[in-house]
Amino acid sequence: MDQLNPMTETPMLTKPRIMANREVRISARKVDIYYGEKHAIKGLSVEIPDRAVSAFIGPSGCGKSTFLRAINRMNDTIPGCRMTGEVLLDNKSIYAADVDVVQLRSHVGMVFQKPNPFPKSIFENVAYGPRIHGLAKNKTDLEEMVVASLKKAGLFEEVKDRLHASGTGLSGGQQQRLCIARAIAVNPEVILMDEPCSALDPIATARIEELIDELRQNYCIIIVTHSMQQAARVSQLTAFFHLGTLVETGDTDEMFTNPRDKRTQDYITGRFG
């Protein structure tokens, strides 16, 4: 029997190297999530580093998206969904009674599988968050925020002449970068991405991956992906989920050359039955 890590109670093998010089931004302790009778996440504990990309991989239905949604309390809206255990953001429970969920989601942004810009102008898509959270002092301030966010999302150069054109008129890849700009406009610490490239062509995918790589300098990013190669390319930490449990967490470099758990090996090499 492996020794358990006292913090996360997962088997303590070697601690991922990526954690050595990173703060822990998010930690989950003994999280169980149920959809009615279905036990979707079973006793999950994990630590997610800041300023790095962590990838959640695993077959469909393994619970990776469920757990991702628990990090900004998106499961709250699902009827019959219950959770026990703790999810901490910067050592504070996000499920505590005094937590304002709207406020929480400005700290923990989310990008979805299908780009979902609001049916508004490019400018308004990005300005929406800062406006409802009252982050801008005045109009110029707001404009600066929008431009800065579009620049960080690598979209500004492509849309600077048509900021007031509709966001839905952009290409799929541009729409996804618009959604990323919208997410970062409210200065989150964490960005959750649920298969952000699965609806995009390879070139748009490469652009998003490039963007993720830039953003990790300043954010804690978690990406759920079905593309093993994408996980290998963009992440530093990989967590492998299977049947609602977290099987293995480790440095991505190691996970893709020498995974410790046979289930991980079977999955990433395409042997899973």
Binding site: M255, F256, T257, Q265, I268, T269
Partner: peptide, 10 residues
């Protein structure tokens, strides 16, 4: 063709 990883890659 296969982008092998882990044991296959080795």
């Amino acid at each position: 063709k296969r982008q092998p990883v882990a044991l296959d890659l080795r």
